[in-house]
């Protein structure tokens, strides 16, 4: 079973995210990491490959330095990678990103496309659904379990009450949640061999992309402003001298919360 895993490079949450006021694009001078959710997707792809054979291809859209995130996925064990990178793609919204990823996915054959549930920066969680629609294959999102028999998938989608089990033939687009597995750390050997694995960097021309569908200008959404929220002010803090609970209860009653 050949698997494509779509990954994104995101800013580290520990670093404060900033948008450039001139373009409302992400200031990428801060520390970047492989989107934490995508580690679960990469791990799941590797487990499927280990059980059923096949190739794992990483697909990423991002700036040139997104090679760091891509190399991490390769170091975990993916076989090869495609990075779509072009200044014309800067400022693409979730829809444009889905278009680019779908076009990149049309350039090779796969049985499954895996995504992390969402990115920790834009946090839309909508790219998997949009990619599935563009590719014309079923979407199964927020999965906590994926089993494969031949070309049939049995998956669990997490719900508040428990889960819903679905059966679906490949090809399909899946997104996975934290908890589906425990992502491996890249080994030293993995990190070394990742440097030699094929990483194909493609620009807009190489993929034959329609430039009216990508980039800041053609985005179907516009950012008007971005600001940091008013920092929450620390309120009252009291030492518990045996009356702590009573004081909380007084506070809650006073604020009409109970």
């Amino acid at each position: 079973m050949n698997i494509a895993v779509c990954v994104k490079q995101v800013t580290d949450t520990e670093a404060t995210a900033k948008l450039e006021p001139s373009s409302w694009r992400l200031d990428r001078s801060v520390t970047c990491i492989l989107n934490p959710y995508d580690e679960y997707a990469v791990e799941e792809a590797l487990r499927i490959k280990e059980a059923h054979g096949g190739e794992v291809t990483v697909v990423c859209m991002g700036p040139e330095n997104a090679t760091d995130a891509v190399r991490k996925a390769l170091a975990m064990g993916a076989d090869s990678a495609v990075l779509v990178s072009d200044p014309a793609l800067a400022g693409s919204d979730a829809q444009a990103t889905a278009y680019v990823l779908a076009e990149a996915l049309k350039t090779f054959s796969w049985d499954l496309v895996l995504f992390g549930l969402r990115s920790t920066d834009g946090e839309t969680g909508c790219v998997p659904g949009a990619v599935a629609e563009k590719l014309g294959v079923p979407l199964l999102s927020a999965l906590s379990k994926v089993d494969i028999q031949g070309t049939t998938l049995t998956v669990h989608r997490e719900t508040d009450e428990g889960y819903v089990a679905y059966e679906c033939p490949a090809p399909a687009v899946l997104s996975v949640i934290k908890g589906i597995n425990e992502p491996r750390y890249p080994s030293m050997k993995g990190i070394m061999s990742a440097k030699k694995k094929p990483l194909d960097i493609k620009d807009v021309g190489a993929l034959g992309l329609d430039t009216t569908q990508v980039g800041l200008e053609s985005a179907k959404t516009r950012v008007l402003s971005a600001r940091s929220p008013e920092p929450r002010k620390a309120g009252v803090k009291v030492e518990d001298d045996g009356s702590g609970a009573e004081k909380i209860a007084d506070f809650l009653t006073g604020a009409k919360l109970v």
Binding site: A245, E246, A249
Partner: peptide, 26 residues
Amino acid sequence: FSCADFGVVGDLLQVVPALTEQIRKR
């Protein structure tokens, strides 16, 4: 505590059951 409107520095194993009791009484 830096984002809490109301904070109690104490052992939750004492404070939480006591709070439950407070709510019940009120």
